[in-house]
Computed example of a mutant assay.
Amino acid sequence: MEKRLAEVETEKLKLSGELRAARKFVETNAEELDVARSQASHLAEELKNSAQLTRSERLRRRAPSFEALLSAYAAQHSAALKYGNRDHSAMAQIPYKLRNYSLAQSHGVRTPEVYGVWRAARDVSLARISAQRIVLKGDGGHSAQGVFPLERTSDGWRSIDGGIRFTGDELPPEILKPLGKARAPYFAEEFLESPSGWTIPEDVKLYCAYGEVLQVYVMRSSDDGSMERQKFSSRFFDAEGAPFGEIRKGLTYNTAIDAPSQLPELVAAARHLSCAVGLPFIRVDMYATHSGPVLGELTSIPSGGNQSYSAAHDQQMGLAWVAGMAALERDLMLGRPFGTIYGGHDYTWLYPESLDNSNMHHADNWTRREVGCSDWCAVEHHGRSPAGSTADRG
């Protein structure tokens, strides 16, 4: 019995010693334990916030995205082209520049004067053109593809940036070859003079959703008049001229670029044409000139770089796009003719007569529906005010 008591006492002393050692360890490492508890607490909070952010991101992506809608739009354009008959697709008709000139004229929007039109690139001759400066281009093409600003010299012509020179009035291979890659017909048009003094007028691109202007993208060429896009600088504005910040990556921003002085007239023309084309989205490219706004071109699928915008701006434009879809659907239900509608102003049809009436790739064989502008194209008809996101101002 005494032996057992001794063993218990020994065990008790051992446990007491371990308890004292444990207490001493706790006292010695209390600060480290507090730090560990704090880190664990912060980690738990971060995990909670991360879960909330992930959910917010999922919810944000459910909202209309301009970039996603544009991607679907491009796929729709490709599908429309496969049907072949462009007379049945307003979207398939958009890339035809001379057709868009006639359309704009019919709605009272000025276009560049056209000095000559040729069926084939090899037929182009500048002999009968009296203008000192012209722009030579094809009916199809984008991002300045197959576009040549030229000026007359004492013995021929040269490109505005001085990179190409040739004598006489027949095109050299360095122009003829790339021009021929653009779609026929080919034409020479008025060189628009910039009131701001730039060699090439500032390109004012207005993104529109059936009567709404989502943003105004002003693009300025380099001082030497080069058509190389990497030398261009840019700035974005809303429809009333308030600047946005750097809402799109991959561009050279220039805060010295001001909103065009003719912005109200440019916006009015773009809104009107965006209602006339019969599409929920269109980009209307305009120029501000000494004689007022002039149409550059229409495009349904903006090119010229990545169209990825900051999250808030992308969503704002996506919402406006969807609103444009709803407004167009409403007008169609109320009796608006499907597709593009021409206005009541006089216009010039610039295409050579089609040699094959069954060729539905030729614009001369398409139906041109004419209605009064006050019926469906006037912005007042829609009761919608110009859009302008408050996101990413700068």
Score class of each variant (00 low, 15 high):
L53A: 09
R336W: 11
F236G: 00
T252F: 09
S78E: 12
A51R: 15
G318I: 07
Y351G: 01
A21H: 14
V371R: 09
E170N: 06
Y309T: 06
I341R: 08
V109F: 03
R128C: 04
A182F: 04
G339D: 09
G146D: 00
C208P: 02
P264D: 07
E297Q: 10
R4G: 06
K12M: 15
T111P: 01
E46H: 12
S56W: 09
E45S: 12
A391D: 10
S38L: 15
D161E: 12
S143K: 05
Y342S: 07
D34A: 15
E151M: 06
V322L: 12
R60W: 14
Y186M: 01
N254L: 14
E240P: 02
H361F: 06
F232H: 08
S300A: 14
G250T: 07
F166G: 02
R271M: 04
Q145N: 02
S89A: 06
S50T: 13
L15I: 15
N254G: 10
L103A: 01
L98M: 08
H42M: 15
Y253M: 11
A63D: 06
M219D: 01
H107V: 07
Q316Y: 12
S38F: 13
M1F: 08
S233K: 09
F232N: 06
F166P: 07
S65C: 04
L126D: 02
L13Q: 15
G292R: 08
R229Y: 03
A269K: 01
G383A: 14
V277L: 03
S222Q: 10
R62W: 08
T153S: 09
S65Q: 02
G162A: 07
R122C: 05
L251V: 09
P64D: 04
G318T: 04
D314P: 10
E9D: 14
G394T: 08
G180F: 00
D223G: 08
A259W: 06
A144G: 04
R271A: 08
Q262D: 13
E212R: 08
Y115I: 01
V267H: 03
L334G: 11
G162D: 11
L19A: 15
R271L: 03
V26C: 13
S89W: 00
L319Y: 08
R152K: 12
G304P: 02
Y83S: 11
G304M: 06
M1V: 09
A391C: 11
Y115K: 05
G84K: 07
R158D: 01
Y351P: 02
A127E: 11
S310R: 13
S303P: 00
P112S: 05
E32V: 15
S358Y: 08
L279T: 06
A68L: 07
D169A: 05
T167W: 03
R20Y: 13
D223E: 13
R128S: 07
Y347I: 10
D314S: 07
K177P: 00
D314A: 08
Y115C: 04
L179S: 00
S389L: 07
T348S: 11
Q315R: 10
P293W: 06
A79P: 05
E18Y: 12
V294R: 02
A144V: 03
